[in-house]
């Protein structure tokens, strides 16, 4: 009786796809540990547990028994990848690296890696998700190469670093003329060419981003576009946290100034 009540109170758990079609008894999770399975085999040599036991755990005599049909996961079909996912992956990469050749190479690297690890693909995620995961990894690798290619020493002392361009070394306040000016953001909401302006703005933002040093570009992209955590970026690029923050800071300072000069310049300056 008590059992019945409990059963009624609990909402019926959703039946996993691989267990559909089996009786309720057979659905009992009986292969939590190998030990339990073995005990059940001894008790019920032909019991329902066989439906769930992996083939290599089955006793020899029953290995030839037909296993219940599990829903088939579709095999990955690499021949269709370029047609099915090529454009999507390419556009994704193009948004990140803004260089058609590099984007193409990244997609190619993705396919090469995917083909190599095809055996490891278990169909737990869709092919599309899986390929995107690989592509994201490739993009991070790309930034890592970019950040490492020219080794730049990082002067941390404020009077040597590029911070001196922005702040007075004596007291750390904004240099004359470097202080941020008010930006007229979103004042032109009602105008018809907002989309066009946005496009132009993004063009300038991209150009400004490309003026940063490769290391700053990589850190900026990993932080603000890939949205990795600070620890991950430090690890990927082999940076100490304080260096990392100095680079983020410098990248933002340069980018901000570049945008202000090229986009937000007051008309009658």
């Amino acid at each position: 009786m008590a059992v019945k009540i409990r059963v009624k109170m609990n909402a019926p758990a959703p039946v996993p796809a691989r267990l559909r079609g089996l009786t309720a008894k057979a659905r009992r999770p009986c292969i939590r540990t190998q030990k339990i399975v073995r005990r059940r085999w001894q008790a019920f040599p032909l019991g329902p547990c066989f439906a769930l036991a992996p083939a290599n755990l089955l006793p020899h005599s029953t290995a030839a028994m037909p296993l219940p049909l599990l829903p088939e996961t579709p095999l990955p079909a690499p021949q269709q990848w370029p047609a099915r996912f090529g454009d999507e992956l390419y556009r994704f990469a193009l948004g990140r690296v803004s260089d058609a050749d590099t984007a193409g190479e990244l997609v190619q690297e993705t396919f090469v890696s995917a083909l190599e690890s095809l055996a490891g693909f278990r169909g737990q995620a869709s092919e599309r998700t899986w390929l995107f995961v690989i592509l994201k990894r490739k993009i991070i690798d790309y930034y890592r190469r970019q950040a490492r290619s020219p080794f730049v020493a990082l002067p941390l002392a404020p009077e040597q670093g590029p911070e001196a361009e922005f702040f007075r070394p004596s007291d750390g306040h904004w240099q004359d003329g470097q202080g941020p000016q008010p930006w007229d953001v979103g004042a032109d909401e009602g105008r018809g060419d907002v989309a066009l302006e946005q496009q132009e703005f993004q063009h300038i933002l991209r150009a400004c981003q490309q003026r940063l040093t490769p290391q700053q570009q990589a850190v900026f992209a990993l932080r603000f576009v890939e949205e990795l955590s600070a620890e991950d970026i430090c690890q990927e690029l082999n940076l100490t946290p304080s260096n990392y923050w100095v680079i983020v800071h410098r990248a933002k300072l340069y980018l901000r100034r570049c945008l202000e000069k090229n986009w937000f310049q007051p008309p009658a300056a």
Binding site: P82, G86, D87, R91, G95, R96, W183, F220
Partner: peptide
């Protein structure tokens, strides 16, 4: 603002040139 815009910049155009 810059961080938001940079993220928007990377968003792939839903329709655009493909491979």
């Amino acid at each position: 603002y810059i961080a938001r815009q940079a993220l928007a910049l990377a968003a792939p155009f839903p329709t655009g040139d493909g491979l």
